[in-house]
Write a protein that binds this DNA or RNA. Sequence first.
DNA 1: AATGAATGAGGGTTCATTCAT
DNA 2: CATGAATGAACCCTCATTCAT
Lengths: 203, 203, 203, 203
Amino acid sequence: MPVEDVRAASQRAARRSQILEAAKHVFSEAGYHGASIHAIIERAEIARGTFYLYFESKEAVFGAVLDEAMTGLRRRIVRIETGLGARSPKDQLTDMVSSLLEFVVADRPLATVLLSSSSTPDAEAAARLAAFYTEVRSVIALSLETGVQIGLLRRCDPELTAAALLGLVRGIVEHCVSRGESPPIEDVTRELIDLALVGVLAR
Amino acid sequence: MPVEDVRAASQRAARRSQILEAAKHVFSEAGYHGASIHAIIERAEIARGTFYLYFESKEAVFGAVLDEAMTGLRRRIVRIETGLGARSPKDQLTDMVSSLLEFVVADRPLATVLLSSSSTPDAEAAARLAAFYTEVRSVIALSLETGVQIGLLRRCDPELTAAALLGLVRGIVEHCVSRGESPPIEDVTRELIDLALVGVLAR
Amino acid sequence: MPVEDVRAASQRAARRSQILEAAKHVFSEAGYHGASIHAIIERAEIARGTFYLYFESKEAVFGAVLDEAMTGLRRRIVRIETGLGARSPKDQLTDMVSSLLEFVVADRPLATVLLSSSSTPDAEAAARLAAFYTEVRSVIALSLETGVQIGLLRRCDPELTAAALLGLVRGIVEHCVSRGESPPIEDVTRELIDLALVGVLAR
Amino acid sequence: MPVEDVRAASQRAARRSQILEAAKHVFSEAGYHGASIHAIIERAEIARGTFYLYFESKEAVFGAVLDEAMTGLRRRIVRIETGLGARSPKDQLTDMVSSLLEFVVADRPLATVLLSSSSTPDAEAAARLAAFYTEVRSVIALSLETGVQIGLLRRCDPELTAAALLGLVRGIVEHCVSRGESPPIEDVTRELIDLALVGVLAR
DNA sequence: AATGAATGAGGGTTCATTCAT
DNA sequence: CATGAATGAACCCTCATTCAT
């Protein structure tokens, strides 16, 4: 690939990022419907037409914002190793949750979009997000089943519990995001893990 | 108040309810922005102008729908009695949660509206919902503090834990609502309580 | 039907006509694409939204304009009677053509729209006009065949001749419309009929 | 002119032709407004900017397409010779019409553009086409007058008849173009001439 | 000469809200 | 009280044209 093309491609990617970033902020502040192309291009400091050079439609940018977020999350979701020599499940879980929280909480707009967008934007994107959450619930449910089988966890309805745990995490993220400044991630993580693992009851 | 006025007032209230019911369904199916006045008045079988005799604006009906829901929920939220002769906290909690779930899950549109609307519809309504959730979190947080003080619960960050627990409940409601037919409320309640109290870990 | 409804219906029809009339002018001046909703509502002196209370879309008004024109034309197109006691075919034809020309030439915008709109507006309307012209050609072709069979007309390719005659009429209409003031319709009609019947050659 | 310049000029002309050809197709398929620069440059396989190196605007290409067509037509329109030793007017006319039809019908896109473009695209080009048709009508009208004077033709309104004859030709061209495969040009020509000269009536 | 990213005016359409009846 | 025709701001999107490379 000639040098100019490389530069062109990278410039194009940069522009795309710039728009994506602007869109993420606008979506997070106004929701899908409340967000106007006007607001996005104003924030991105580009012309109306330019927007449509990079994204087919409002729905498309929203999808892209979501995809980006989901990719970031997926990269941080890993299976818990239970083999010999593996670190303790709780430690692994702690690392994973910590990493996830860090990613989400650090990018407040992203978190807002992720949290708020059960509001059916327009079919496909909503479906994609729903699919993502279903996917996450499945991972959790499977982990729960495994945990039960190896006797680490008590018996429970895996699906329901997975849904509850996902909600629990969302609740915590919302908490962190809603206040100007959230407590250190490691503290939050510890509380989260403790709550999920041993509940609130005193022994 | 003369008889006619009483009748008039009750008729007025009935009309209002009729619109409110229609609006709740429409909001739950289409979200705040997706809901159109047209859809609401069509469902309520009234004329356009009539709508505005009962509600100031779209935002106002949405607020009313929310308020109605919140009233129903508030009625079911009670302090846990810890005095002598009181039933066990767990039993009280179970009853309360059970009652709340029943109320919410039975009225799917209501549940949908409650769940979906962190998506900032339009400032005020969103604020009202946020305020409601804050209120709920406060109740939970206070209960947690009390529980810790009397040694029933282990120490934790009450605010954070309250947020997590609220999320947990929402996750479960979402789970129940999302499938066509949810498991018996009492089972769901038991799982919820167990998870919250003792977590997932086997003893 | 109650009196108010009658009035309402007639008012509605009047409004519709008003918009239709404005649209006809605008379409005739700017063509389908060149015509903007803005121009139409400005001419009709109504608000943007009002337009859409009466017509679904720009395409729909165009279709309505066309339909109106086609209805007017169809009413004036009749079969030539060849039975005993019927007036001479030439006289019948003269009357018909005269009536058609009068209708079209008197309404210049209408004529313009009819003439100019092979310009593919948008699928359906274009198809409708094309269908109309096809229909007219068919009527002419059939008449020609009949005429040939009864020995009134010389042999010819009916389809081709019908197309030519239709074009001939359109040419004349265009001529009449293009000049500010056209010659008396009866003169034009006579020339048209003569040309079609006996051509330009001297006997 | 240096050799390089000659080559350059011819290359430039070739490029221009290439764009013109693409434009003609696009205009004929989509009409003036429906045609997009995008479609033209795609078909011509050139870049956006390049287009504007050869044509000032969309309107300008359209004008050029029209001019090209009109040039082709003009070359085939000749005066009928009436002097001694000239071939019979009918034969001359037949040759001319035949040549014209061949030119137009063979280049369907061109025919489509010519036929469809009374739809005022954008003032100037429309004016040019109108001027062309006026010019053609004048030639026909003059020929008619001459024919009448020398007793070859019966008396008629030359202007009106010219308009009618032009329409007649357009009707026939439309007929030929609209069907996938038109009858042999010579047959069409004969019908056309016969119709124009002696009409449809049996002698 | 050639490119194509960028521009922004302008297009059609929707819909919450008002007000004369 | 109830009605629904009328309003017009705001929306998303297209596309002819420009200009830095």
